[in-house]
Nucleic acid binder design. Structure first.
Length: 157
DNA sequence: GTATTGATCTTCT
DNA sequence: GAAGATCAATACA
């Protein structure tokens, strides 16, 4: 269950799409629903979902999720037992789901992926984004209220 | 406990 | 050659 996301769009200096379409972010300008995966700091993968029509260059970064199934698989991939740390963070999330550059450009609604809306209405809180140096004051980080699986307030198991 | 830095790779200057 | 939408190990108080 996704509990934390961040928004990125073309007029945002911190966004990969800010400087226009480039080799790295071509997927970000693709059709909505595509998965945009890029390498971060050389060692992590970060997963985004394109959320505007083709050519716009807007996407949502998946920052954290609450593991609800296949915990053993995720724990094995992360080498961790603490459920609160399995996917609390962009790099951790991709590692837990085994997402890599090979998944860049795939449709989030097909193949190995599944996307479902919440079963009930959820309470979402906005806050400053994490880990960026530009436009860090924009309240474009959206997290599930009260969730202990978000990446910021380091959850204590 | 908080602060700092290394790991490691793609893209841009 | 430097920096980045990060993580985790190490250094210090």
């Amino acid at each position: 269950m996704i509990v934390e996301t961040e928004a990125y769009e073309p007029t945002d200096p911190a966004s990969h799409s800010f400087a226009g379409k480039k080799t790295r972010n071509a997927t970000m300008f693709g059709a909505p629903g595509l998965l945009y995966v890029y390498r971060s700091y050389g060692i992590h993968w970060c997963a985004n979902v394109v959320c505007c029509e083709e050519g716009v260059g807007a996407a949502v970064l998946l920052r954290a999720l609450e593991p609800t199934d296949r915990l053993d698989v995720m724990r094995a991939r992360r080498g961790l037992d603490d459920i609160g740390l399995l996917a609390a963070g962009p790099g951790r999330l991709t590692q837990a789901l085994d997402i890599s550059g090979a998944h860049d450009g795939l449709d989030i609604l097909t193949s190995p992926f599944t996307m479902r809306p919440p079963e009930a209405s959820v309470e979402v809180v906005a806050s400053p984004r994490v880990g960026i140096t530009l436009a860090a004051d924009r309240l474009w980080r959206y997290s599930l209220a009260g969730s202990s699986f978000v990446s910021r307030p380091r959850p204590r198991a």
